[in-house]
């Protein structure tokens, strides 16, 4: 059974003049981190809203853990953090989590245990009595994340979870997401931050103008460029350049290293052997892969 499935899911507005999403088919396996990428207005948020019945589909349907999305109970084991969430400012973190936890179907006695745990996890336990109106953007995002996890969901939908968060906050949220993945949860992310997605996601789908234009494993998109960055000890860089010249390998010079086009593993091993035989200390060999950003821009354009 898939965590999330959609069948020809379509959402058009203004009598078909605005096509937010068209014939969107997707199957997300359980226990994976899945990311939806695309430029603004590509239909990423629309897809999550359709799956969670925040908007009604024009046609097609979807399933969450095998249950049709039109059935409210399909959302019993889901958590959601929207892009620009607005939390009730007159409550404090504990009250807010209790209120939303009850709405998510969690029992009161479960919440009395779960809320302190979650507040510690998102590092807000010390601020639990502070009114939400006094929270910073980063704190709101972390509290929103805690809200998405309050009912111990199997699938978590996060729309731009690290948007507007400082680097430390991003790392903390990333750690939370990896913990979820390790706990066997399915995480569904919409994000513009491609470096984050590249680090976290198992699978990716790219949307453009409401249609899916690419889908697959993240690793498959990050192809090798056939170039290696070879670094050696300071002062022996010229020896490295001479070696590459001798083998007619094209390269570009960098500080204490060369970025060389080596398409054959045997050639790479031969270079390593030569460097070692001349007692040159290799400080690093790094395969140059296409970044998700490069791939995304290539596909979208």
């Amino acid at each position: 059974m898939f965590a999330v499935e959609s069948r020809s899911l379509t959402k058009h507005y203004s009598r078909g003049r605005v096509k937010a999403l068209t014939d969107f088919d997707i199957s997300v396996e359980q226990g994976k981190i899945f990311s939806l990428l695309g430029p603004n207005g590509a239909g990423k948020t629309t897809f999550i809203k359709l799956i969670l019945s925040i908007v009604e589909p024009t046609s097609g349907d979807g399933l969450i853990l095998g249950k049709n999305i039109s059935d409210p109970s399909s959302r019993l084991k889901t958590g959601y953090l929207s892009e620009n969430h607005r939390l009730p400012e007159f409550l404090n973190a504990e009250q807010f989590l209790y209120y939303y936890g009850r709405m998510s179907g969690a029992a009161g006695y479960e919440l009395s245990k779960k809320i302190p745990e979650l507040l510690k996890k998102v590092k807000l336990f010390d601020k639990k009595d502070l009114k939400i109106r006094k929270y910073s953007k980063g704190m709101l995002q972390r509290l929103g994340t805690a809200q998405a996890l309050i009912n111990d969901p199997d699938i978590i939908f996060l729309d731009e979870p690290t948007d507007g968060i400082d680097p430390v906050g991003r790392i903390e949220i990333r750690e939370v997401l990896l913990d979820l993945k390790n706990a066997g949860k399915t995480v569904f992310i919409n994000s513009h931050l491609l470096s984050e997605v590249e680090r976290l996601s198992d699978e990716i789908a790219i949307l453009k103008e409401g249609k899916m234009i690419k889908k697959g494993r993240t690793a498959d998109f990050l192809e090798s460029t056939g170039r290696y960055k070879i670094s050696v000890e300071t002062g022996r860089t010229n020896d490295l350049y001479s070696l590459l010249d001798g083998k007619n390998i094209s390269y570009s010079k960098k500080d204490s290293c060369a970025e060389a086009a080596i398409e054959d593993n045997a050639v790479l091993n031969d270079i390593i052997d030569k460097l070692r035989s001349e007692k040159i200390i290799i400080t690093g060999i790094e395969e140059q892969r296409t970044s998700l950003e490069d791939f995304f821009i290539k596909v979208v354009n």
């Binding site: 969670l52 019945s53 925040i54 109970s73 889901t78 607005r86």
Partner: peptide, 12 residues
Amino acid sequence: KGSIDLILSKPI
């Protein structure tokens, strides 16, 4: 906006 999304995402 932002409030209704969270509430509608609940199993109610």
